[in-house]
Design a binder for these strands. Structure first.
Length: 473
RNA sequence: GGCCCUGUCGUCUAACGGAUAGGACACCGCUCUUUCAAGGCGGAAAUACGGGUUCGACUCCCGUCAGGGCCA
């Protein structure tokens, strides 16, 4: 059997971590089985569907490296297919037109509630004769289309949870379409899944209660059922399902902040699944090789942003400065960082990136940790003080450093020589390095001073030391 | 409210009837070090609760409680 999976978002919001995880697992499973992964846009809700969200979904998937083999297929372009199914269901008397008005339905519902029954449709219009229906149609009485639901227990198999039971008598004959041209979610989804040959429906656990409704369509049409696997939900830090409402950031926001797609993919896959052994940093290739859908965890998991940051650091450190430069140049979301690439020579810029990335969480962070290379520095003179030394002692140390540096010929201005010279100046090396480091960075915490001096060069370094000495006078 | 799903360190997870319940993030020490980061070493930290089943339950069953989802 050729495996076919799909990701079927409705374009009513930006793609966030929760739905990206669903897409990812569908993709990984399909690829692990040498199957196909399909993108379907469920845009039948014309009010809430927006083109901008379609673009966002497509762009986000592309960025994450979740490539679909077919699609995007738009439901809005498939109205004829749904119409045929609806007509067939009515023809076979599996579904019927319901002419009840909102007021009538509301009255019945209130009645049922007062009787302590679950509110559901009582099937009045199912009893209408063909003649009665035709009369109402000719009078243009508005209607919806309902599916006939048998009063029995439906059991379906979820690949991760085993058998799930559902009492259909609680459901009543639910609405599957507002008209022949306006299918609802519970109709359009199974129809597409069937016609698109989807073998495995992998989606969020919030769809478990929807599953019986969709299975009923399959049964009414006499179609072979797909395999269902409902993924655990990702919960926000505050508890509820991760969603726009719970302050979930979109994938593109992470991109904008300088996260790497590898880190996000690795992070998401760890929510509910884990690679063999004790390793946690895994590439998409390894994931695809080791992935087994049955091994996916069923319990919901909370989103842990600190672990995402940690993974991002891991991947950031693996990148060479040249690769980071390329990312900045090629990603419009990081466009503004280009300015940083033009200040120093390419060689020096690579060195700066190297220093910055060791301390950065994200690509964007790189330049904030080494901002002293790019902006005028200022700091309170107290920052120059190492331990309990006096201003006088620090000033003298800086003067010694300055004189030593001035005496170093240009050709010997390299790491080893500088280290030998600076190491020899004071018994307490902190008396040398701390004030020197503050003088060139203005910061409490920064990369090591010699690395910085080498990029600034002799002249600029001496200028900065002179400024520091000036402060202490 | 009804129905459904789920309960292992704070968080993500391993253990799929048989070890001192393992790892990762975060946290706290120590170490390295001029600072920060990274690294190395170490620490604290969990089977929700109550009943069964079994020679033996994290693991199977029932109940309670808790969290979450869907519908209304």
């Amino acid at each position: 059997m050729v495996i076919r999976t799909r990701f079927a978002p409705s374009p009513t919001g930006y793609l966030h971590l929760g739905s990206a995880r669903t897409a990812l697992f569908n993709y990984i499973f399909a690829k692990s089985q040498k199957g196909f992964f399909i993108l379907r846009i469920e845009d039948t809700d014309k009010e809430r569907s927006k083109e901008i969200f379609v673009e966002d979904i497509i762009e986000s998937l592309k960025w994450l490296g979740i490539n679909y083999d077919e699609g995007p297929i738009f439901q809005s372009e498939r109205i004829e297919i749904y119409r045929k199914v609806i007509e067939e269901l009515i023809e076979k008397e599996k579904a019927y037109r319901c002419f009840c008005t909102k007021e009538e339905l509301e009255a019945k519902r209130q009645e049922q509630i007062t009787r302590g029954e679950p509110p559901r449709y009582d099937g009045t219009c199912a009893k209408l004769t063909k003649e009665e229906v035709n009369t109402k149609l000719s009078q243009n009485v508005p209607y919806v289309i309902r599916l006939k639901v048998p009063k029995q227990i439906l059991t379906f198999k979820d690949l991760l949870r085993g058998e799930v039971k559902y009492d259909l008598s609680l459901l009543g004959d639910f609405v599957i379409a507002k008209s022949e041209e306006e299918p609802l979610f519970h109709l359009a989804t199974p129809v597409d899944d069937y016609y698109q040959g989807i073998t495995h429906i992998i989606r969020g656990a919030e769809h478990i209660p929807n599953t019986p409704k969709q299975i009923l369509i399959y049964k009414a049409m006499n179609w072979k059922l797909p395999i269902y696997a409902h993924l655990p939900l990702i919960l926000g830090e505050s508890g509820g399902k991760l969603s726009k409402r719970h302050g979930a950031k979109s994938i593109q926001e992470y991109r904008q902040e300088g996260y790497l797609p590898e880190a996000i993919v690795n992070f998401l896959v760890l929510l509910g699944w884990h690679p063999l052994g004790q390793k946690e940093v895994v590439s998409l290739e390894e994931i695809i090789k080791e992935f087994r859908l049955e091994d996916v965890e069923v319990r919901h998991s909370a989103f842990n942003p600190k672990k995402l940051i940690w993974l991002n650091r891991v991947y950031l450190r693996k990148k060479s400065p040249q690769e980071i430069e390329k990312l900045i140049l090629n990603d419009p979301y990081l466009n503004d960082l280009r300015n940083y690439l033009e200040v120093y020579s390419a060689e020096d810029t690579y060195k700066i990136i190297e220093l910055g990335k060791e301390r950065a969480n994200t690509i964007r962070d790189i330049f904030t940790t080494v901002k002293f290379f790019y902006q005028e520095i200022d700091y309170p003179k107290e920052l120059l003080i190492w331990k309990d030394y006096t201003f006088e002692q620090i000033k003298n140390s800086l003067i010694t450093i300055k004189n030593s540096l001035e005496n170093i010929p240009e050709e010997k201005f390299n790491y080893e020589f500088l280290k030998t010279v600076l190491d020899s100046l004071n018994e307490d090396k902190g008396l040398t390095y701390w004030p020197l480091r503050v003088a060139v960075t203005g910061l409490e915490a920064s990369p090591p001073p010699i690395d910085i001096i080498l990029i600034f060069g002799k002249k600029k370094t001496i200028e900065l030391i002179e400024k520091a000495i000036e402060k202490l006078k």
